[in-house]
Amino acid sequence: MSLMKKGAEANLYLEPFARALHRAGEGKLVVKHRISKRYRTPEIDEQLRESRTALEAKLFSDAKRASVPTPVIYEVDRVGMRLVMEFIEGKQVKLVLDKLSRNARRRLCELIGRQVARLHRAGIVHGDLTTSNMILTREGKVYFVDFGLGEYNPSLEARGVDLHLLKRALQSIHFRVTDEAYRAVLAGYQREFGRGAGEVIKRVEEIEHRGRYVAKEDRTWR
């Protein structure tokens, strides 16, 4: 079993299909193991790991149904806190986005925007839309490979936060191309989402102006 990625929340292992699931299988697959964190109380630790494992599996399959490419889930292990899933061959969008031509970047970002809109229309919010969670395949498909913080939430607020997070990821990682990339994401989002997209985008702006940067005098309670 080889460690593919040591994440903040889970470790990803790359394994031969034949060894992990069935000896008749071919190729490789990914095992996502949610690791226990010593810093948090065991009740929170167990609860978070189990519920996130089960929920993530369901989100993967519902996202696929909404025409958003995601890996196939082969096994959900709620005791071992493991997901066994298809290995997607391709490149992390995080690593390619800055290097693409302006046009290719626009097309890629529009596609990402369209896929986010499809999720939202299916009642799903991703919860962690960063370019390191997206794999670009040779055929030009973009796989969303991590739904660890996703949820079923059709509210304007949740959708706004989702897009806000993507914008924030673009700002922190792709700060040289943030504006054009985000514009393209929104263009794709609007086209796919249709009516109501404007409301979501307006909510993103509202969310940006919240928090500490709203004068306390303007808050509803103190």
Partner: peptide
Amino acid sequence: HYIALPYVVKGMD
């Protein structure tokens, strides 16, 4: 005793 309370992490926020 730990009493379950809403744990809210939205991506990085």
